[in-house]
Amino acid sequence: MTWLGAVPTLPGEHGAAHVDALLLAAFDGVATDFVCTHIDRLGPVAVTTLSAHVTGEVDVDRLSAALGGPVVVLDSPDPDSPGSPAARAAKAARDRAEGRCIRFPGQSALTGTHPVAEVVAGSAIDRVVGIGVPVSPTDRVETLGFLRPVCQDGELVLLVEPAVGGVLRPTEAENPHECCGGH
């Protein structure tokens, strides 16, 4: 039962679903129940960091190779790590202070349209918060198979907004409009 932090090398934008998939793939063979991405802004350029709650054994070196960057174990005796971006990520997730959750308990059962009460009862999500609208336990959340709740003030919160058909949809979509630029 360990909290890990990491600074992965990302082949794409923070928040892109395909990047999440690559990050999770790096954890193949490592039992995790909670994985978050974070943005570390303390340097001159913002860096995407990663945190994970590992429930079994983990080979840190192998994981580090798979993620392409340093991995630190929270509360390890290593004196260099406490102030590192990786350690900050691990702490933020442990404390549910901030972070964008890409794996959490109950996620796999929430792939369809579910009442708010079921989302909260059947997963680690503590609260469903509507943007500009009140949310009642019977309101339906159309997950579209993609949930990215966020850590906020010690809670795991799913932000939702009104969508076509009188349902609520998560504010973060899996495939937002690709913004162009002929890079």
Binding site: E13, H14, G15, I39, R41, A46, V47, T48, V129, G130, I131, G132, R148, L159, E161, V164, T171, E172, A173, P176, H177, C179
Partner: peptide, 28 residues
């Protein structure tokens, strides 16, 4: 059937942290 203006994104690593979706508004 997407976001008017193509506005259906969420914060990324280069977003200004003050522009955050909250219970009252979504800047995106």
């Amino acid at each position: 059937g997407t976001g008017r203006g193509g506005y259906d994104a969420s914060p990324n690593q280069d977003s200004f942290p003050g522009y955050a979706p909250t219970a009252t508004e979504n800047p995106y």
